[in-house]
Amino acid sequence: MDTETASGQDGSPEQAVPLWALFVLSATGGLIVGIAAMVARGLLPGSVAWIGDSGAAWAVAAFVAGAAAAGARPWACAVAGLLAPWGAVLGYHGFTPLLWLDGQDLRALLVWTVCAAVAGPLLGLAGHVWRARRGRWRTGAAALLGAVLAAGGAFELIG
């Protein structure tokens, strides 16, 4: 059994979180983000409904998961960053047919799953760096998240 934990910045034992709990919370948080994005897509008016379809929210979930795991080893932050957007993909594409009664495009599900597999660990590591490091490393990690958010907005403006 793996006894590794994700501890707080000061390493105090009362702040230690078992890795399995961190991973469950990352996936569950992602699931909630995916469901919220799907509901937003269906309920927001036309000009802002794209926010529900934006992968930027899922990127924020991966970054936050990595930041929450900052006391753990970098690989654990990458896994937490992966589980958050995979949870979002599951939440979004799993609950859309239930709430809106429309069919799902399996190609879109595959594309978002692959995107999450690439971007999730990178943003999880960026969250780890943002929380655990100082100086330019921290600035670069925040800039990566900002670039993802800006790219999402630019894509919507151009598309």
Rank of each mutant, 00 (worst) to 15 (best):
T5E: 08
A6M: 12
Q9L: 11
Q9P: 10
Q9R: 07
P13E: 06
W20H: 12
A27N: 07
L31R: 08
I35L: 13
I35G: 02
V39R: 06
R41W: 07
G42F: 03
G42C: 00
G42M: 01
L43A: 14
L44N: 13
S47G: 12
V48D: 07
V48S: 15
V48R: 12
A56N: 02
A57W: 03
A57K: 04
A59R: 10
A61P: 14
A69V: 14
A70P: 09
A70L: 00
G71N: 12
G71Q: 11
A72W: 09
R73Y: 03
P74R: 04
W75K: 05
W75P: 06
A78P: 15
V79L: 13
A84Y: 02
P85V: 12
W86D: 09
V89K: 10
G91Q: 07
G94Y: 03
F95N: 12
L99V: 07
W100E: 07
W100H: 04
L101V: 04
G103T: 13
Q104M: 14
L106K: 08
L106N: 12
R107G: 09
L109H: 05
V111S: 08
T113Y: 00
T113Q: 00
V114P: 06
V114D: 14
C115Q: 09
A119Y: 02
G120D: 00
G120Q: 06
H128G: 14
R134C: 09
R134W: 01
R134F: 15
G135F: 09
G135Y: 11
G135A: 10
T139H: 11
T139C: 13
G146H: 10
